[in-house]
Amino acid sequence: MRSAPAVAVLAVAVALATAAGGWWTVPLVAALWARVTPIRRPVVGAGAGGALGWTLLLGWTALHGPVTRLAARVAPIFHAPAWALLLATLLYPALLAGAAAGVVRPRRRWDARAVA
């Protein structure tokens, strides 16, 4: 499977799962995705998919409320600029998804022949 469509699929899955079940679904979805999706760099792909999934959700939220105003008010509580809070929101699912993908053994590994 080509990487970009696979990452897009993961992003949509992460977004839907987060909306339905919460943040903890991110590693589950990423692990499942990494297990069944044959792409060359699943960890990177999962990280990208996780970040993209939450970007979609954040974008949807921004359409319904003043996300930047909220960031400006809340980020200083953590002694951080507003952009850092936004960045953390995208980085966290990326790390979660990437780590989850790194744990699972892909069903079909692109590098299997190299090992053999």
Binding site: W23, T61, P66, A88
Partner: peptide, 17 residues
């Protein structure tokens, strides 16, 4: 996790502003 969740976490506060 529940804080940064862009759908049900901190950011949802913006949607109820």
């Amino acid at each position: 996790g529940p804080l940064l969740d862009p759908f049900g976490g901190l950011w949802a506060v913006a949607t109820t502003a």
